[in-house]
């Protein structure tokens, strides 16, 4: 079938560069071109001896962790609020969350930079986390909104009707229903932060995150060591995606949309 062929060609276009990256990370020689001269783990060995890189990775992990945490807390609260708001309230949250997604990172980055400059806040890990939340929070809210649209408000009423107090309703019905989506969204927030480059480059000051380290390496040289780092980053993304997917697969999650069909 023609459509199938077209689709798979496009997918090959998407995936092939990533495969090439992984392939050359195992290249025995320093060249990044065919013919392939044999497999080696030397580039990975080089990575593990690199303390600068280790520092950047640690920094990125810390930043991503706090970004995900703050995003989760704010996003969870906003999601619960969203369920209770009328159309106008929802529109406010929506406008605030959708607009940053539709703007280039450059715009967000420079406007945060001028804010920090104007408020006299020194650029640091803190300013990076603040900025990453600005990017991750809207993504979490958009993801939550899609799930919450399927949340039947009569579930909460049913719990009350059956004798549950407001707190019991929250603990026994609302939270179990939204938790899987919240957690998988928070994992995505982690991934977004871990990979963020453009905004970070404006608000990082002297800090170096992993993407910034990769950037500086890329500008200096082309070596399979960058491939090895990229492969590990890629692997990490796959792991995160898999994690989010597994949580999404929990049967409780699938159930949120299982309202009876009309």
């Amino acid at each position: 079938m023609l459509l199938r062929l077209v689709v798979w060609t496009i997918l090959a276009f998407l995936v092939a560069p990533l495969i090439i990256i992984v392939l050359f990370s195992f290249h025995a020689s320093a060249s990044l071109s065919f013919p392939f001269t044999g497999f080696s783990l030397r580039w990975y060995q080089e990575i593990f001896g690199n303390t600068q890189l280790a520092g950047a990775v640690t920094k990125s992990l810390i930043i991503a962790f706090f970004t995900a945490l703050i995003t989760l807390v704010l996003g969870a609260s906003a999601s619960l609020g969203w369920l209770r708001l009328d159309r106008i309230g929802r529109a406010v949250i929506e406008a605030m969350s959708v607009t940053p997604i539709a703007l280039p990172g450059l715009f967000v980055g420079v406007s945060l930079l001028v804010l920090f400059a104007q408020a006299g806040i020194r650029l640091s890990t803190l300013t990076i986390v603040i900025s990453h939340v600005v990017i991750a929070l809207p993504i979490l809210i958009v993801a939550m909104k899609a799930r919450l649209a399927l949340f039947d408000p009569s579930l909460e009423e049913a719990a009350r009707d059956l004798g549950a107090s407001q707190r019991q309703t929250f603990a026994r019905v609302t939270l179990p229903l939204i938790a899987p989506t919240l957690i998988s969204s928070a994992i995505l927030a982690f991934a977004v932060s871990f990979d963020e480059f453009v905004v970070t480059s404006f608000v990082a000051g002297t800090e170096t995150t992993l993407p910034m380290y990769i950037w500086s390496m890329m500008r200096r040289t082309v070596t399979p060591m960058v491939n090895a780092i990229s492969t590990l980053v890629l692997l990490f993304s796959v792991a995160i995606l898999l994690g989010a997917w597994l949580i999404g697969r929990l049967r409780r999650q699938s159930a949120i949309s299982a309202r009876a069909e009309p």
Partner: peptide, 14 residues
């Protein structure tokens, strides 16, 4: 002392 059967049942999916 009143309980309700909801229109779309509102059964707890979890």
């Amino acid at each position: 002392p009143v309980n309700m059967v909801f229109q779309r049942y509102a059964l707890f999916p979890h």
